[in-house]
Design a protein around this nucleic acid. Structure first.
Lengths: 253, 253
DNA sequence: GTTTGACCTTCACGCTGCGTAAAGGTGTAT
DNA sequence: ATACACCTTTACGCAGCGTGAAGGTCAAAC
């Protein structure tokens, strides 16, 4: 019932280096060493190793395992629950990665021919650059680094389909806004529809929607010359009208 | 349009250390360095960094990214497909981990009270030890290290529910075998049912089932004194009878 | 008795993708 | 001139071992 490193290693299906490492970090020390320094393991060590490997297969770190197997059984369940949460989080991340990778493959592959794709890629990059050049600094200062980076990342990750959808949405916003302005009533049906469409449009770029942020953006449309110029190109006073409509839509005064 | 490390780092949302590291491993070198050795990045580098970060978010290793972005666009899709396979494999593994962790939590928690649980844990461990002590060496020699280790690992991972199921199955095998022996016909319905139950029983322990292995095990039941003794305790000649039934069931002569 | 050959030992570097000092030079606003 | 924010290179640290290197030990074979 006594094992040398290699014997125990074979028994448990690990390498002898692993056992020496476990000795080194103090998670599994040999029962004793013989006169010439050989590590000798006994029953207890076999049991302990079995436990270690069990938790290791569950993906628990050696540090955690150490805590688990030296602490009472009560703590083990808690530790495992925490570990499960981590695993679930990891899987969510992984799923996100996979869909993104698949989107990228789809957009890189057939579906859209090469010149189209290049145009689109080029367009995306240019859009980010322009964004950065024109509004980057101020927006970064106002809304923080992270938000802007996330927005750019999202833009880069859009598929062509999504891109078309969002472009069409923007057009709809503009045309609806244009029609709504003829009625002159920012609280009217058309104006509210424009606000709704506008909400849909920004949620393509934003990670989360809030009425406050939406209303804030509307305010900026008027306050910032460049945004104002963009909307007023549709029709003079469009920026103000859209702002009013959004303020009513979001119920923020 | 020229950036120092920190400027570019802020623009891209990474640390300056990261940029220096990318320089070091040759994945992103600055356009030039100024008179006092400062790294200066330009347009091209911004673009390249954007690409790097894009792939990095997909979980691609920096080595792979280097290959992708220096190779023609054609290879990128292939590389991504390979990457996708890896991610899918990873997710499968993760799912397995999660279910195992959940099983463990369930078995550690309520459902079964503490003393029951301890008995069960103890039983499992003892079973493995006994297995190892009695049959370990020979079985290892006959079937290879890996198979035995996997079998032990599987045993350790069983939940109490599964354990009960497998125990009940073993009893069923025995009682059916006992009844079948009264008919005296190893090709008869009862004997074949015993063989079928026996198959179900071993598939709890084996990773994959094959007729050859099943028949081989049956042969061993007779050849090996200890196995023979176990079955003959049910009724003298039971080992031989079961072997014959299994041979017929598997169609192996 | 000695020579294999299969064990064992203790260093110690390598892998990934940076974080985090340390020690020192540079740029610019006050 | 002084402070302060920026830049540089060098190098250890992280997890969990793999993989030598350099040398001692043990049983069996000659």
């Amino acid at each position: 019932m006594e094992y040398t490193v290699q014997k125990l290693a074979q028994l448990a299906g690990v390498s002898s280096r692993t056992l020496r490492y476990y000795d080194e970090i103090g998670i599994l020390k040999p029962a004793r060493t013989n006169s010439s320094g050989y590590r000798i393991y006994g029953r207890h060590e076999v049991d302990r190793l079995q436990q270690i490997l069990f938790y290791r297969e569950l993906g628990v770190s050696l540090d955690q395992i150490k805590e688990i197997i030296t602490a009472p059984a009560f703590d083990a369940a808690d530790a495992l629950k925490e570990h499960r949460e981590k695993l679930l989080e990891k899987r969510k991340q992984l799923d996100l990665l996979i869909t993104n990778v698949e989107k990228t493959i789809a957009s890189a592959e057939g579906r859209t021919n090469m010149s189209d794709k290049e145009k689109f890629e080029g367009f995306k990059k240019k859009m980010i650059e322009d964004n950065e050049k024109q509004y980057g600094k101020e927006i970064r200062e106002k809304y923080g680094e992270e938000a802007v980076n996330k927005s750019n990342a999202k833009l880069m990750n859009m598929t062509r389909e999504e891109h078309e959808a969002v472009t069409k949405l923007a057009e709809e916003v503009n045309s609806t806004l244009s029609q709504a302005m003829e009625t002159g009533d920012p609280a009217g049906g058309l104006a509210q529809k424009a606000a709704e469409l506008h909400k849909q449009w920004i949620t393509f770029y934003w990670n989360e929607y809030s009425k406050e942020a939406h209303a804030g953006l509307a305010e900026m449309y008027v306050a910032d010359e460049r945004f104002k110029a963009y909307y007023d190109k549709i029709q003079p006073g469009a920026a103000e009208f859209l702002r009013d409509a959004i303020k009513i839509y979001t119920g923020q005064q």
